[in-house]
């Protein structure tokens, strides 16, 4: 069960990290209009209510999050402070995530369909360490441990354990063609 004090502390960390990454040109007054901030704020409240036993409020805030920002962070997922979701559109997150996680966009963290083993986050859900960066369209699926300071490349699909300080490469090879006739 998470305390209100802890929720406030995590939100402060989120806000500080978001402002640090906004740079000098970011307009602080319009922070509430940013989907990046909205989705993290709504998830913190949703997780707080859900873990305190008020599951209706938790689910209502989750629905609001899904409606407003398109970010599907389940109310059961325990995310440490300093979360940045750069583009929350089409991002899903179920599982346990450490501090200072950075999610770029179109990412998915959650259970696969095959394995339902429980490693502490829930049936079939992953546990992710601190300072993890997920690139565009990266997927972390299944009951796996992802270590600290891991960078997961664009479109990478991670279905097995990843040790600390690892860089998972981008998916795919690109062939460059020059269109004929033009």
């Amino acid at each position: 069960m998470i305390t209100w004090h802890e929720t406030r502390a995590r939100l402060r960390a989120d806000r500080a990290r978001l402002e640090a990454h906004s740079g000098a040109e970011g307009n602080r007054r319009l922070m509430w209009l940013q989907p990046s901030y909205q989705c993290v704020l709504l998830h913190r409240l949703s997780f707080y209510f859900h873990s305190r036993g008020n599951r209706l409020a938790g689910r209502a805030l989750w629905h609001l999050n899904l409606l407003l920002t398109g970010c599907d962070i389940a109310p059961i997922s325990d995310v440490g402070g300093g979360l940045i979701v750069q583009f929350p559109l089409a991002t899903g997150l179920i599982g346990t995530v450490g501090r200072n996680c950075t999610i770029e966009g179109h990412c998915g963290i959650g259970g696969g369909t095959r394995r339902k083993g429980d490693i502490g986050a829930g049936p079939g859900l992953p546990i992710i360490g601190d300072d993890v960066v997920l690139g565009w369209g990266a997927l972390v699926m299944g009951p796996i441990h992802v270590g600290h300071r891991v960078t997961i490349g664009h479109g990478a699909v991670v279905t097995s354990d990843v040790p600390d300080d690892t860089v998972v490469p981008d998916r795919g090879l690109a062939l460059l063609h020059r269109r004929s006739g033009t």
Binding site: L18, H21, S22, G26, N27, Q34, Q86
Partner: peptide
């Protein structure tokens, strides 16, 4: 569908 044209930095700036 679901294409993204974005900047390089992990940056959530608003305007520029």
């Amino acid at each position: 569908f679901r294409s993204a044209v974005v900047d390089d930095r992990i940056n959530v700036h608003l305007e520029r």
